[in-house]
Design a protein around this nucleic acid. Structure first.
Length: 423
RNA sequence: CGGGGCAUAGCGCAGUCUGGUAGCGCACCUGCUUUGGGAGCAGGUGGUCGCAGGUUCAAAUCCUGCUGCCCCGACCA
């Protein structure tokens, strides 16, 4: 892609409406624009990153044998009344009526829909175990949306639901999803931790959260310095008289091994064992040799759009975003400087651009008629991990330059070498 | 929902106290010159000053009501 054909909506000024770093940078780098409180447009660069994250998630879901489906965002109130959550879920559930005065809500999650789907489609125990997933827009009418897409009302989530014949089988499904999540977060190139969590309004027994570590994270996490023990600090606070979570620092770990250390995290994934909560309330049964049984369910969420913000919270500098190459909108920025000075400079750019594309690299060629400083600043702001610089001086020596985002070092290479250098 | 703040051009802001032809920087358009870290000169485009009432000869400015957005809190995957 050439920048001359791209809606590169970078802004020079800091946006006045944003406080957190990821929110500021997402606006400034032209990834998103706000439409209403907690509701955003995703611009071309932002969508590129979203798709990268989605593709990693999708790849690992498929690898684990989960099947992709797509459920509606608009859901009939009837199903929510059946599960009991029409009353229970609260004002985060955005409710409205259609022209026939039938009640609907915008889906904040999909347990009701998936359970309804499965009770219609799944008859025999031979069809289990099964896991379905979707990547889809959710809506939760947050009391106070904040921090850009980090806590927005409309957001993109991958949610998966497992159905098993026994608790033991459910544990296997849970473990398989957990393994997939580990592969996903490893692939994303983020520093993350898994902690014990509260299962909250979704209901159910065991649950674990995946957190991207960042000082700006909303959640406080507690770790033992001697064992694997890791927990969302909220859970420890509930049982203490001292309500200040920071007081946990240095206390004995509840597992009896070592002392607690605290870190901040952004919750980007949450996996639950639901048990029979929904299968029983919504009468989902399968036939087996022992009669009809209620499947054991599990549900598994990943905040796709939140991951984009979390990645920026964790990886940025004073110049802007620093993407890992796995989720960067482009792997390589190609910056031409003063192409009018040397008439073959443009040709060299074109050759390198074409070759890299043939090698499967996603290259953003900054061919705008702008000064070098503007181009460097923009490419750094939008966080492209590798940059090739082609300017008059080096061109005359038949050299181009290569620079990694986040590093100061610039290396001079002949054009063929740079083709091998790019990853 | 409680507390605090903001609303003037695409972005960032001044002007409001003390009413008198709506401004600045950047961006954008034209032309020329420039070109290795956010270029220069010249000429341009763009705003019912969040909305609705009211006061006044006259309202961005004063008064009343409303709306939207941001931050802190409660809440939340």
């Amino acid at each position: 892609m050439k920048t001359s054909n791209l809606l590169l909506a970078t802004q020079r000024e800091n946006p006045s409406d944003a406080e957190t770093i990821s929110h500021k940078l997402m606006l400034k780098a032209g990834l998103i624009r706000q439409v209403a409180s907690g509701i955003y447009n995703w611009l071309p660069l932002g969508v590129k990153v979203l798709r990268k994250v989605e593709n990693i998630v999708r790849r690992e879901m498929e690898k684990s044998g989960a099947q992709e489906i797509l459920m509606p965002m608009v859901q009939p109130g009837e199903l929510w009344k059946e599960s009991g959550r029409w009353q229970q879920y609260g004002k985060e559930l955005l409710i409205f009526e259609d022209r026939h005065d039938r009640e609907f809500c915008l889906g904040p999650t999909h347990e009701e829909i998936i359970t309804d789907l499965c009770r219609n489609e799944i008859r025999s125990h031979k069809q289990l175990p099964v896991i379905f997933y979707q990547i889809q827009t959710k809506f939760r009418d947050e009391i106070r949306p904040r921090f850009g897409v980090m806590r927005s009302r409309e957001f993109i989530m991958k949610d998966a639901y497992s159905f098993d014949l026994s608790e033991q089988q459910m544990d296997d499904s849970y473990q398989s999803m957990r393994d997939a999540y580990v592969r996903i977060f490893n692939s994303l190139g983020l520093d993350y931790r898994i902690v014990k969590a509260d299962s909250g309004a979704i209901g159910g027994a065991d649950s674990e959260e995946f957190h991207v570590l960042a000082d700006s994270g909303e959640d406080l996490l507690a770790f033992s310095d001697k064992s694997d023990y890791a927990i969302n600090a909220e859970l420890l606070i509930e049982s203490k008289s001292d309500q200040d979570p920071r007081s946990l620092e240095g206390q004995d770990s509840p597992d009896g091994k070592g002392k607690l250390k605290l870190k901040r995290g952004i919750e980007v994934g949450h996996i639950f064992k639901l048990g029979r909560k929904y299968s029983e309330s919504m009468k989902l049964t399968v036939q087996s040799e022992n009669g009809n049984i209620y499947p054991e369910m599990g549900c598994y969420g990943i905040g796709i759009s939140r991951i984009v913000a979390a990645a920026i919270e964790q990886n940025h500098d004073d110049k802007g975003i620093i993407w890992s190459k796995e989720i960067s909108p482009y792997t390589t920025a190609l910056v031409e400087i003063n192409p009018k000075g040397e008439k073959n400079l443009k040709n060299l750019c074109n050759q390198i651009y074409t070759s890299l594309k043939e090698q499967g690299h996603e290259v953003l060629w900054d061919d705008r008629d702008q000064s070098a400083g503007v181009k460097f600043s923009d490419m750094e702001l939008i966080g492209i991990p590798q940059m090739i610089i082609i300017g008059e001086k080096s061109f005359r020596e038949n050299k181009v330059e290569f620079k990694m985002r986040g590093e100061d070092k610039i290396v001079s290479l002949i054009p063929d070498e740079v083709l091998n250098k790019i990853q």
